[in-house]
Nucleic acid binder design. Structure first.
Length: 489
RNA sequence: GGGCCGUUAGCUCAGCUGGUAGAGCAGCAGACUCUUAAUCUGCGGGUCGGAGGUUCGAUCCCUCCACGGCUCACCA
C-alpha cells in the first residue's frame, strides 16, 4: 500500500474513532446540480442550494479555501471561509482529500474573479476516498487503466462521461424512432442450443440443469422471424450479441446489435428505414446529420448513395463481373488480378459469387467513406435472403457502409421453407469444406416458415459502430464502458 | 496468431555510452481571507512489469513470460 493510501486510512480511522464515520452516512438531499446552478445564476443568486459530489481540487489560501466539486453534470466551486464555518469544522475540512465525496449547503454567489460558486455554510464528508485520484492536469492517460478501471476514466475525463451519456441518448432515439413506427421491442434468447443467423464462431457454455451444451447468441434473426410468423408484424431486439472472434478497434466479443423485421416490405423499405433511423439519431443527439469523424466530414442526410456490389467492383476495381459467366472464368480473373489471397476457400472451390464478394472487399470497401448502400449480394453468401426476381445467383440484400466500415445488413427475408432448407444444406457443405462459420441448420425455424411468414424486410445495425460515428470515437472500446480484457495478473 | 511499440513514485513523464534513479502534480509539515494547473518554504515516497542470462556491476544489453497499445491476418 502506498504512503498516500496509508495516510488516508489513518484519517479515516481518526474520524471513526470520533464517531464520525463517513461510511455510516446514508443520504444527502441534492437540491441542485453543478451546471444547473451556473445556467440559472440570475434566479439562484443569494439563494440557498444543496449540492454533492467529489472533491476534484482543493485550494487552501489560509483562512479561506476553494473546492472544485464534481457531480454528474460537471463542476461547481465551493467557497469556504474559516470565520463562518468555525475554527473546528474548518480545521477538519482541511484534512479532507481530493477524491473525497462531500455534501455542501450554502448560497449561490459570484466570486471577485467571476466564478459562480456556492458559499458553503455546512459541509459533510459523505464518503472517504482511500485511493488518490490520477494527476489533475494530465488526467488518466494509460489506456489499460482507462479500460480496466473505467470509473477512474469517468471521473477524470468529462469527454468520456459525455460519450457514454450520448450512448444512452442514441439508443433512446433509436427506440423512439421505431416505437413511433409501430414496432414492438421483444427479447429473444441469449442462450440457445443452436447459434445461427450469422457467420461467426459462438461462445460455448453449459446448462447444469439440462446437462446440455448451449451457445451464446451470435444473432437474433431466426427468433425475430418467428415473431413475424407469429403475427407481430414489426419487431426488434436491441441487445448484446457474442462472437468468439478477434478483438480490435472495431470488434469486441460482446457488442450491441439491433435487428428489426417488418412484414409486407422488402430490402428497399429497409434502406429507407436505415438511413432515416441513423439520421434521426444523429439529428436528435448531435443536432446535425453532417458530422466530423476522425477529421472527415460524413453526411448522414438521406438519401444515401445506392450502388450494386457488381457496380462497386466495376467502379473501384475496373472489373466487370456482368460479363463473367462461369465459376472457372471468375477463378481465372481472381488469379489474374491477384486478389485470390482474399478468398477464404481454395480457389477451385470458389464460386463466381464468392469471388465477386472478395473483389468487392479488396477493391471497393475502403472507398465507401460517405454512407453507401451496397446492394445485391451473391446467393451463396446470403443463405437467409430472397433471390432477385429473374436472377437466382443474386439476392435482395444490402449492407450499409460508412468510412469503409460495415454498419448494417439487410434482406428481403427468405420465406420459402423449401428453399430455406436447401440453403441450410448448402451451408452444411460449406462447413464440410472447412468453413466453421457456416450457418447452422435450425429445424424449428424452417418449421416456422412452413406455418407461413409474410413477405418481410429485415435489418441489423451495429449499435456500437453507430455510436462511434456519432461520438467521433476512434475505437469500439471508447464506446463500451467495460470492454473485454484479459485478467491482469 | 505475426510484426512494431510500451510497462520507471498514487498519476503524467525524464533517465545519454551499463556505475542500483529524477521532475511536475499528488502527499506530509508550515505560511497565506477571492483562488481556479493558486502561490511560497521545507520534507518523505521506488521489488524500474516478472523470471532467467551476460557482466566486477543491469532501469539500460540478451532470452523467455505477463499485460497493454497500434497494425496485419481473422472477423460483418
Amino acid at each position: 500500500m502506498s504512503e498516500q493510501q496509508l495516510v488516508r486510512r489513518e484519517k479515516l480511522a481518526k474520524l471513526q474513532a470520533q464517531g464520525r464515520d463517513p461510511f455510516a452516512m446514508l443520504t444527502w438531499n441534492q437540491s441542485h446540480h453543478s451546471v444547473e446552478i451556473k445556467q440559472n445564476f440570475e434566479q439562484l443568486e443569494n439563494k440557498d442550494v444543496s449540492v454533492a459530489g467529489r472533491i476534484m481540487s482543493f485550494r487552501d489560501i489560509g483562512k479561506a479555501a476553494f473546492i472544485d466539486l464534481q457531480d454528474r453534470d460537471g463542476r461547481i466551486q465551493l467557497y469556504l471561509n474559516a470565520e463562518q464555518l468555525g475554527p473546528e469544522q474548518y480545521a477538519e475540512i482541511k484534512t479532507w482529500d481530493v477524491g473525497d465525496i462531500v455534501g455542501a449547503e450554502g448560497y449561490v454567489f459570484r466570486t471577485k474573479r467571476g466564478e459562480i460558486s456556492v458559499h458553503a455554510k455546512r459541509l459533510v464528508l459523505l464518503t472517504k476516498a482511500l485511493e488518490p485520484l490520477p494527476e489533475k492536469f494530465h488526467g488518466l492517460k494509460d489506456p489499460e487503466i482507462r479500460y480496466r478501471r473505467r470509473y477512474l476514466d469517468l471521473i477524470m475525463s468529462p469527454e468520456v462521461m459525455e460519450t457514454f451519456k450520448k450512448r444512452t441518448l442514441i439508443i433512446r432515439a433509436i427506440r423512439e424512432f421505431l416505437d413511433n413506427r409501430g414496432y414492438i421491442e421483444v427479447e429473444t434468447p441469449i442462450l440457445s442450443t443452436i447459434a445461427s443467423g450469422a457467420a461467426a464462431r459462438p461462445f460455448v457454455t453449459k446448462s447444469n440443469a439440462l446437462n446440455l451444451q448451449l451457445y451464446l447468441r451470435i444473432a437474433t434473426e431466426l427468433y425475430l422471424k418467428r415473431c413475424i410468423v407469429g403475427g407481430m408484424e414489426r419487431v426488434y431486439d436491441m441487445g448484446k450479441n457474442f462472437r468468439n472472434e478477434g478483438i480490435d478497434i472495431r470488434h469486441n466479443p460482446e457488442f450491441t446489435m439491433i435487428e428489426l423485421y417488418e412484414a409486407y416490405t422488402d430490402y428497399k423499405g429497409m434502406m429507407e428505414l436505415c438511413e432515416n433511423l441513423v439520421a434521426y439519431a444523429a439529428q436528435k443527439v448531435c443536432g446535425a446529420t453532417k458530422l466530423s469523424y476522425q477529421g472527415t466530414e460524413i453526411d448522414f442526410t438521406p438519401p444515401w448513395r445506392r450502388l450494386t456490389m457488381s457496380d462497386a467492383v466495376k467502379e473501384y476495381g475496373g472489373i466487370d463481373f456482368s460479363s463473367v459467366r462461369t465459376n472457372e472464368e471468375a477463378q481465372a480473373l481472381a488469379k489474374e488480378k491477384g486478389f485470390e489471397h482474399e478468398l477464404k476457400k481454395k480457389l477451385k472451390d470458389c464460386t463466381k459469387g464468392d469471388i465477386l464478394n472478395a473483389a468487392f472487399e479488396f477493391y471497393a470497401e475502403e472507398h465507401l467513406i460517405q454512407p453507401t448502400f451496397i446492394m445485391d449480394y451473391p446467393t451463396e453468401i446470403s443463405p437467409l435472403t430472397k433471390q432477385k426476381p429473374g436472377d437466382p445467383t443474386m439476392t435482395e440484400r444490402f449492407e450499409a457502409f460508412v468510412y469503409g466500415r460495415e454498419i448494417g445488413n439487410a434482406y428481403s427475408e427468405l420465406n420459402d421453407p423449401i428453399v430455406q432448407l436447401d440453403r441450410f444444406t448448402q451451408q452444411s457443405k460449406e462447413r464440410e469444406l472447412g468453413d466453421d462459420e457456416a450457418y447452422q441448420l435450425d429445424e424449428d425455424f424452417v418449421a416456422s416458415l412452413e406455418v407461413g411468414m409474410p413477405p418481410t424486410g429485415g435489418l441489423g445495425i451495429g449499435i456500437d459502430r453507430i455510436i462511434m460515428f456519432l461520438t467521433d470515437a476512434y475505437s469500439i472500446r471508447d464506446v463500451i464502458l467495460f470492454p473485454t480484457m484479459k485478467p491482469n495478473s
